[in-house]
Nucleic acid binder design. Structure first.
Length: 485
RNA sequence: GGCCCCGUCGUCUAGCGGCCUAGGACUCUGGCUUCUCAAGCCAGCUACGAGGGUUCGAAUCCCUUCGGGGCUACCA
């Protein structure tokens, strides 16, 4: 029987999770869900100088926010834990010792400074820089001499002659000559493990069946395979590798702050829905095969296969993300929309969050739903409903103070004041009859003046609905106030 | 420099030898609709990096070349 599908997402939280990380996590998750396998979340925190608890906590939070639930990992546990590498140090130490005993690895006493000097010399001689094997076969006397000097030793893996060939599920057969893969360090001088050791040990110990990760790790794969060999892992128990193409920035190279933000936390604050982010990101390097582009998380789990993943890098396009986000916002029910929008209204200090305010926001959401592309636009669109010190925007001022506008406003005030029923229908009927039919004005001119007076801006949600929501007294007050400008 | 990966509209992609005078989406442009802005609808612009092969036939297969990227750490 085929082995269980187990896919892991193993970030090293040296900062906030970024777009590239999440695209990988999304593919990992989607593949696990598609196959009915397990999605494993592992934290690679062997670099204690760069990984912090805050970043780890933020990573969990981001994955949760996106809806990428994990079956094994931090907080949920699992049969192959712990899932933080910093808690598995003894496991790595045991394997390193075994490799040493077997002769697969050896102690290397070269210092960083010496190594750098030698690499420099290699570069100068136009040779491939890499470990030269100086400590490969030290005599007991030499070892004793280095120890006497007080040198620390790293544990270095011996790369045998030959080559490593493996099949990448996305790129096909990939081969590396070992002469281009120098002996690499498994354990630091202080005894702490390196990624090269921990990642291979954990993937095997956690019975990971598929390693879907960024293509930057493609060239480190032969090193992982070397560790599997030293561990005595049978070929059929090697994970299947699939190296995902990069997500790059707008212009040239890697995605960075310059060309769009990288941190997922930023997108969250900017008013993007998790499903929009996932929908957009999954389209970067993968497609369902037909012309479908609006894909729900559920559809993703049904459709996602590694076979359909592209091998070429994709450029991140904020415009398209926004378009998808707009689509997702429009697809929200009003209650869902309200839940997402409220925090933005409160954070922007447009409302404090009273029941009355929430009710008004809720009734106003339908008229702005198809007008926004990010949740962060909600406060600006609705602030006219809550303004305590209402004022017409400076840019629009001149458009309500001219004589023609004054006439429109005067007439509007006269027509609207006697209205007993204040609904968008009655308001529209009154205004159309007086301004359009009787005065013969163009709708955009006539309603434009009223719009500025009532909402303070030339751009607003539909005028009559806005006036209905604002209420009769406030609407009339604002028209009067504009007349006095 | 060496090794490895990649190369279809501006961008994301469909395409896996004939269905391609290359399809969809985003962007952009024009129009319709219209109380502004949107949304919606219609139309348009724009691509197989280049050169050789293979084949009756190539975006699809092979080679070369050019271009882009990654790696080359006691980072991951």
């Amino acid at each position: 029987m085929a082995r269980e599908i187990r896919v892991r997402f193993a970030p090293s939280p040296t900062g906030d999770l970024h777009v590239g990380n999440i695209r990988t996590a999304l593919f990992d998750w989607a593949y696990a869900r598609h196959t009915g396998g397990k999605f494993i979340f592992r934290i690679e925190d062997t670099d204690t100088t760069r990984v912090t608890d805050e970043y780890i906590a933020a990573a969990l939070d981001t994955l949760r926010w996106l809806g990428l639930d994990w079956d094994e990992g931090p907080e949920v546990g699992g049969p192959y834990g712990p899932y933080l590498q910093s808690q598995r140090l003894d496991i790595y130490a045991d394997w390193a010792q075994k490799f040493l005993d077997q002769g697969d690895a050896y102690h290397c006493y070269c210092t960083s400074v010496e190594l750098e000097e030698r690499r420099e010399a290699q570069r100068a001689a136009n040779e491939a820089p890499g470990y030269d094997g100086q400590c490969r076969d030290l005599s007991p006397e030499q070892v004793a001499a280095f120890r006497a000097e007080g040198r620390d030793a790293v544990v270095r893996m011996r790369m045998p002659d030959g080559s490593t060939t493996f099949v990448d599920a996305i790129r096909g057969e990939v081969s590396f000559e070992h002469k281009f893969v120098p002996d690499f360090v498994l354990v630091r001088g202080d005894g702490s493990p390196l990624y090269t050791l921990a990642v291979a040990v954990d993937d095997i110990m956690m019975k990971v069946s598929h390693v879907l990760r960024g293509e930057d790790l493609l060239s480190s794969t032969p090193r992982q395979i070397r560790v599997y060999q030293a561990m005595g892992v049978a070929l059929e128990d090697y994970p299947i590798f699939a190296h995902l193409p990069f997500v790059m920035g707008q212009d040239n190279a890697k995605l960075s702050k310059r060309n769009g933000e990288v941190s997922i936390a930023w997108y969250r604050d900017a008013g993007f829905l998790p499903e929009a982010i996932c929908n957009y990101l999954v389209l970067l390097g993968w497609s369902p095969g037909d012309d479908r582009e609006n894909i729900t998380m559920k559809e993703l789990t049904e459709l996602f296969t590694v076979e359909r993943v592209n091998s070429s890098p994709a450029r991140f396009d904020m415009k398209k993300l926004e378009a998808i986000n707009g689509d997702k916002i429009r697809a929200l029910t009003i209650d869902e929309f309200l839940t997402w929008a409220l925090p933005f209204m409160i954070r922007a200090q447009v409302i404090t969050g009273t029941d009355e305010q929430i009710a008004l926001v809720k009734s106003a959401l339908p008229i702005i739903q198809e007008r926004i592309t990010r949740l962060s636009e909600v406060p600006a669109m609705l602030k006219f409903l809550f303004a305590t010190n209402f004022a017409v925007e400076a840019d629009s001022l001149s458009k309500v103070t001219d004589a023609a506008s004054k006439d429109v406003l005067k007439r509007s005030l006269a027509e609207l004041t006697p209205l007993t029923q204040w609904t968008h229908d009655t308001i529209e009927a009154a205004l159309r009859a007086s301004l359009i039919e009787e005065l013969g004005l163009k709708p955009r001119i006539a309603f434009g003046s009223v719009r500025i007076a009532v909402t303070g801006s030339t751009v607003s949600p539909p005028l009559f609905e806005s006036m209905e929501l604002l209420g009769k007294s406030a609407s009339l007050e604002r028209i009067s106030a504009a007349l006095a400008l």
